[in-house]
Computed example of a mutant assay.
Amino acid sequence: MKGRGAVSNSEGRFESLRVENVHDGWDLLEELPSAPQTTVSRETAKSIISRNESPDIPYDQSINPYRGCEHGCIYCFARPTHSYLNLSPGLDFETKLFYKHNAAELLEKELSKPGYVCSSINLGSATDPYQPIEKKLMVTRSLLEVLARFQHPATVLTKSAMVERDIDLLAEMAQKQLVSVAISITSLRDDLKRTLEPRAASVAARFKAVRRLRDAGIPVFVLFAPVIPFVNDSELEEVIKQAAEAGAQGANYVFLRLPHELKEIFREWLQAHVPQKAEHVMSLVQQSRGGKDYDSEWGQRMRGQGVFADLIKQRFLLTCRRHQLQNRAVWRLDTTQFKVPPRSGDQMGLGF
Rank of each mutant, 00 (worst) to 15 (best):
R211D: 08
R189L: 15
A248E: 01
D190R: 08
A205H: 10
N232E: 09
V210E: 00
P198R: 06
A225W: 01
T186G: 11
S180F: 07
V210S: 06
G250R: 02
A209W: 00
F224L: 04
F224N: 01
G250E: 08
Q249K: 12
L236K: 09
Q249V: 15
L223R: 12
P229V: 09
A244E: 05
K193D: 00
A204P: 03
P219Y: 11
V222T: 03
A209K: 03
S184L: 07
K208V: 05
R194G: 00
V220C: 04
R212E: 12
L236C: 02
Q249W: 14
V231R: 01
A244Y: 05
A201M: 07
L223M: 12
K208E: 12
V227C: 11
I218G: 05
D215L: 14
A248L: 01
I240P: 01
S202I: 06
A209Q: 07
A225E: 10
S202Q: 04
R206V: 07
L213F: 02
A246M: 05
P229N: 10
V181T: 02
D215N: 11
K241A: 09
V210A: 04
R189D: 10
L223F: 14
D215E: 15
V220P: 05
V203G: 01
F221A: 05
P198L: 05
P229A: 14
A200G: 11
V203I: 09
P229G: 04
A246T: 01
S234M: 06
G250V: 14
V222C: 00
P198G: 06
F221Y: 15
A205Y: 07
G247Q: 06
V222P: 00
I183E: 03
K241T: 14
V231A: 04
S184Q: 08
N252Q: 09
F230C: 10
K241S: 14
K208D: 15
A251D: 04
V210L: 11
R206N: 03
E237V: 07
S187Q: 06
Q242W: 15
F207M: 05
V203K: 09
V181G: 04
D233P: 07
E238H: 11
A216H: 09
A209E: 01
E235K: 12
S187A: 13
R206D: 11
F221E: 07
P198W: 02
A244H: 04
V222W: 06
Q242E: 13
I228Q: 01
R199D: 07
A204H: 13
L196I: 13
V239T: 04
L236P: 07
Y253G: 00
I240C: 03
V210P: 04
A251V: 00
E235F: 05
E245A: 14
L223H: 11
V220Q: 02
I240G: 00
V227W: 03
Y253F: 08
A216Q: 00
D190W: 09
F230R: 14
L236W: 02
E245M: 14
R206F: 10
P226I: 04
E235Q: 14
